[in-house]
Design a protein around this nucleic acid. Structure first.
Lengths: 239, 239
DNA sequence: CCTTTAATAGTCGCACTGACTATTAAAGGG
DNA sequence: CCCTTTAATAGTCAGTGCGACTATTAAAGG
């Protein structure tokens, strides 16, 4: 009931933090910024910043992304709330509640510092360790969430350009899940799932490859995949 | 990067709101409180309240639940973050950012008002309309989330007492999804999914029923169901 | 033109599932 | 004490999805 009626309310600083993913050279990359100020000056961190009084967390997330990394007017950006981190002590200086977002980008435009960030850089996911604040945790949570949502949503297309080949889409799954998938089976499954992708008639990707050019597809309209595309179980999983 | 370094930060009021569900008499019920204060005095709302400076949102959620509804020491309570609502104007008096939670309870202990709440009451989900603030939206989001999570997690057991029959578990699915399920098939599926439930040896529910008493089960240890228990597609869904 | 590379097509068998039917085990009324 | 009622549990069968393959096709480039 937003019950501020009787008790005095304590003011909090509210920030947004972004875990922005893309796929580069077959590896999952995360956008990081180097902190220019204490605390954690010189450490890498997730981009983010303060919520302004007139904007929602979603708007703040897009704004900060542009300010700190130069990624502006990112049309293909998929942005979704992850969760909110509110443990006392997560910031050494004051009480900060942070709304975390996970974001996906198709291609990887170069990033540069700005705002509070000394510099910004795409970093391989596995190399993004020992970040400032509790950002290691946020980043791991974001990756888990993305991996899980690939199973039952068409989210993977958010990593792809507007038109993409099935091979590129498969690469997304293999990269995020860290597995390999059988190509014919992947193809059959994707095409059999209504609303996942739709063919672009008569188009083929001509990008310098040596073999037969692949047909192009666009993201479909379905939000959820029925049936889902289940992740292969790691060895020895079954109870 | 929690970038409060250069810009002045604006203070916000931070609250938690709870959508607490249970199943009563075969229908999904939600815990609501009647507001004792303006704004929205006399209107029904989700329980919740201010975050204190020394507690996380999760702890605040449990505390407010106890204060406003008398539901304290709820051992079987499942509590999970839904999302954070931060649109400007969602509270007519000040800038409030609210961390919303979805919660599930096995049985339904009676609730009574307290704290900021004039009274508290279990309300059938379908009758919970025109709530204060944006709580209609939060409630709908929570219900969607719960319904979806039933598919691929063992969450349904959170609606059940520590020991339950497969019939009771099936009732949870049918109630939340608004469908009917074939009993033998449901049984087969649940028992074939490793870690979903485990049998309580030699126990049977004797509660006054007329027919053969059902065997009892406990919640299993698996967090995710492999394979998931997919919701039947509504008529005419396939594209 | 011929080799290479990758996309696409097709096959086979098992496991899962939806839609059923049949059986069993107790409770409670007569 | 039996017999009806109620519900749990067991079993059947066909269609389908999917993993693991093999085979074919289409272009690029030397």
């Amino acid at each position: 009931m937003d019950g501020y009626d009787k008790h005095a309310f304590e003011p909090f600083a509210v920030t947004v933090d972004l875990a922005v993913f893309t796929i580069r050279e077959g590896a999952l990359h995360v956008l990081l910024v180097e902190r220019g100020q204490e605390p954690y000056a010189g450490r890498w961190a997730l981009p983010g910043g303060f919520l302004r009084p007139d904007e929602s967390a979603e708007r703040a997330a897009r704004r900060e992304l542009g300010e700190e990394t130069g990624l502006t007017d990112v049309t293909g950006l998929h942005l979704e709330q992850l969760r909110t981190y509110s443990e006392p002590g997560r910031d050494p200086r004051m009480r900060v509640v942070s709304v975390a977002f996970a974001a996906l980008l198709p291609d990887a435009p170069e990033a540069h510092g700005g705002g509070d960030a000394a510099q910004a850089r795409w970093t391989p996911y596995d190399a993004a360790r020992e970040l400032a604040f509790d950002h290691d945790r946020i980043l791991a949570d974001a990756r888990d969430r993305i991996g899980a949502k690939l199973e039952y949503t068409g989210l993977a297309t958010a990593f792809c350009p507007p038109e993409f080949t099935l091979g590129e889409l498969q690469q997304v799954y293999e990269t995020v899940w860290g597995t390999t998938l059988d190509r014919p089976n992947f193809r059959r499954k994707v095409l059999a799932t209504p609303g996942f992708v739709e063919a672009v008639p008569g188009a083929a990707r001509l990008t310098g490859g040596r073999g037969k050019p692949a047909a192009l597809y666009r993201a479909g309209t379905a939000a959820a995949l029925h049936p889902p595309l289940l992740r292969p179980v790691p060895e020895g999983r079954p109870a």
